[in-house]
């Protein structure tokens, strides 16, 4: 479980997150949506331990990891994993070395590479892989250390439509196999509903609404949520919250 209680955070003297309270259950996938600059990525960095919240408490499981301006547990000891928006692959390491660095060893590496479809390419560096293969390395690395929770920052941005479909299918399989809390920043509500149980909408650093997509549709809390839903409906939404394997 990831639990945020009354979390606020500032960057460069500006308050970026205000009084956020959100709990992600043990096997739950929560998608965070919101306009650019709303504080979505900052929220992930607070959970990861790269930013200390100015106020509030962050718990992972039963452990308080950040409280009122202090990081009580450093990033490397939180047992979390992240798929970065720009993937953040290390140019000097092969796919296998990425997994080794993240804590996997022996047959587990082979199994993970097999699972994400990278067998035969384990000794290639990022520059020798295609865009889709790099996404898979980033995903495999995130799963390599058997993390307590998984965070994904726009994992489907910068990929073409065909690859996006393929990655959504892979992500859904992986998330259903490994039941753990997942916090996902995503741009497109259609993709959010394909992957998440609940959607959390952030605007200007505040959490304006949290709920299943049906709840958002029934009682949109702001004009932004209305616009988001209108876009999604207009865009022929094919997946609904019920399509998620956890539900």
């Amino acid at each position: 479980m990831i639990d945020l209680q009354a979390v606020s955070a500032s960057m460069h003297g500006r308050e970026v997150l205000r009084d956020i309270s959100l709990t992600i259950g043990a096997e739950e996938v929560v998608a965070i949506v919101g306009p650019s600059g709303a504080g979505k990525s900052t929220l992930l960095r607070v959970v990861l331990g790269f930013i200390a919240p100015t106020h509030g408490t962050v718990r992972i499981g039963q452990t308080v990891v950040s409280v009122n301006g202090r990081l009580t547990v450093p990033a490397e000891e939180r047992g979390l994993a992240m798929v970065f928006q720009d993937l953040a692959l290390w140019p000097h390491m092969t796919a296998r070395e990425h997994l080794q660095f993240a804590g996997a060893a022996g047959p587990r590496i082979e199994a993970l590479l097999q699972r994400v479809g990278l067998r035969g390419k384990e000794d290639r560096r990022p520059a020798q892989l295609s865009g889709g293969e790099r996404q898979r390395v980033a995903l495999a690395r995130a799963l390599a250390g058997d993390p307590a929770a998984l965070l994904l920052d726009e994992p489907l941005s910068n990929v073409d439509v065909a690859l996006r479909r393929e990655l959504i299918a892979l992500l859904r399989e992986l998330l259903s196999e490994r039941k753990r809390p997942v916090l996902l920043v995503i741009h497109d509500l259609r993709e959010a509903t394909a992957l998440a149980n609940r959607v959390a909408v952030i605007e200007a650093g505040r959490l304006v609404q949290v709920g299943a997509i049906a709840e958002l549709e029934a009682r949109p809390a702001s004009k932004f949520v209305e616009a988001l839903l209108a876009d999604t409906t207009g865009g022929n939404r094919t997946c609904s919250s019920s399509s998620h394997p956890h539900t």
Binding site: A75, E76, A81, M82, A88, L89
Partner: peptide
């Protein structure tokens, strides 16, 4: 940051 998640 990707490294910091699993290493000191």
């Amino acid at each position: 940051e990707a490294g910091r998640l699993s290493a000191p």
